[in-house]
């Protein structure tokens, strides 16, 4: 870890101004920042401490939906009664994240903005594409945990497990920057490596994610979030799947659906193909299976990760059925 100073700005505007400057990095929950600092992946001169900013705090009901401050800790999300009831997949994703100790430190904002877990990126001795080097080591190397969809030129998978669940509910990020504020759908917030392999989203210099806004859940919405992990204890998912289903009133027909995968692509991976398989149809195991198959259409596995394609199919099917409350036989 290099030496740095820590500045606590009095207000958001000042925070944004500071963060526009070179060598300034935001400090919130700090879990990922401290990790990156220890690995010398970042070496900022200044950390800008955001914990003093009230705009980033709290979970509030708003217009039937919820505003979740960026500093909200994961354990709060996991335990919040409204989230558990109306946004089940989000609460489940938060509960599955990391460890109890980390969930008590890590924030919603940090979960969305954490850097990839790729072992080349996190290795202090490897200067990879993501760190400004000239190549991604995954395709020619050890890629069992890497992208099967949307990869290239970097093949990381996006590490946020909240993001797929949030995207399944159409959440937006509320962002404040030097030139004012904006709101962007989370689905559009994350960017593929083709845009810029060195980053995972479109946050501009000086911008701060202030909150995540969840719209009111559609009437009759049900959701589920599942992870496939090698270990049942603390481990990163091989694949994650979030499913949000809206039933047509008075029938078994799926009126609307969102299927979002995690850990399969450099961004949280929404699958319109999978959604199409179930929207407008009565849901049963066969429909769910078809959606699973569709969810990985166009997958390009690397040398060691074709198994993730198989897992994704199953997990999407299971998430859909779980959301719908259908027991598999």
């Amino acid at each position: 870890m290099n030496r740095f100073e820590v500045i606590t700005p009095a207000d958001l505007a000042h925070a944004a101004r500071l963060l526009s400057g070179e060598g300034h990095v935001a400090l919130a929950g700090g879990v990922d920042v401290i990790d990156l600092l220890k690995l010398d992946i970042i070496a900022p001169a200044t950390l800008v401490n955001l914990k003093n900013l009230p705009e980033l705090r709290g979970i509030e009901s708003r217009a039937g939906g919820l505003r979740i401050g960026a500093l909200t800790q994961l354990h709060e999300v996991a335990e919040h009664p409204l989230i558990r009831e109306h946004y089940t997949a989000v609460a489940d994703a938060a509960r599955e994240a990391a460890t109890p100790q980390i969930r008590n430190l890590a924030t919603v904002g940090g979960n969305l903005l954490q850097r990839p877990r790729c072992w080349y990126f996190r290795h202090p001795d490897v200067h990879c594409l993501k760190k400004g080097g000239d190549r991604c080591y995954a395709p020619g190397g050890l890629n069992r945990y890497h992208a099967i969809l949307g990869g290239g030129p970097s093949f990381i998978v996006h590490p946020s497990n909240l993001a797929p669940a949030l995207i399944a509910f159409g959440a937006s990020a509320k962002i404040v920057g030097p030139s004012g504020q904006r709101s962007v759908e989370l689905e559009k917030f994350f960017t593929l490596p083709t845009v810029d392999p060195r980053r995972e989203n479109n946050l501009e210099p000086g911008e701060v994610v202030v909150a995540v806004e969840l719209p009111a859940p559609p009437a009759g919405a049900k959701s589920a979030y599942l992870e496939a992990r090698e270990k049942q204890s603390f481990d990163w998912p091989l694949v994650a799947a979030a499913a949000m289903l809206v039933g047509a009133p008075g029938s078994h027909t799926v009126h609307d659906a969102r299927i979002v995968l995690g850990a399969v692509a450099p961004i949280p991976w929404r699958s319109p193909d999978a959604e199409k398989e179930i929207i407008g149809h009565p849901l049963d195991a066969e429909r769910a299976r078809a959606a699973g198959e569709a969810s990985v259409r166009g997958a390009h596995p690397l040398s060691d990760n074709a198994y993730k394609v198989a897992i994704a199919k199953v997990l999407v099917r299971r998430a859909i059925l779980k959301a719908a409350g259908i027991e598999e036989t």
């Binding site: 072992w119 080349y120 290795h123 001795d125 490897v126 080591y137 020619g140 190397g141 050890l142």
Partner: peptide, 8 residues
């Protein structure tokens, strides 16, 4: 890693 010879 076979390219770099390091433990990842």
């Amino acid at each position: 890693d076979p390219q770099l010879g390091i433990m990842v």
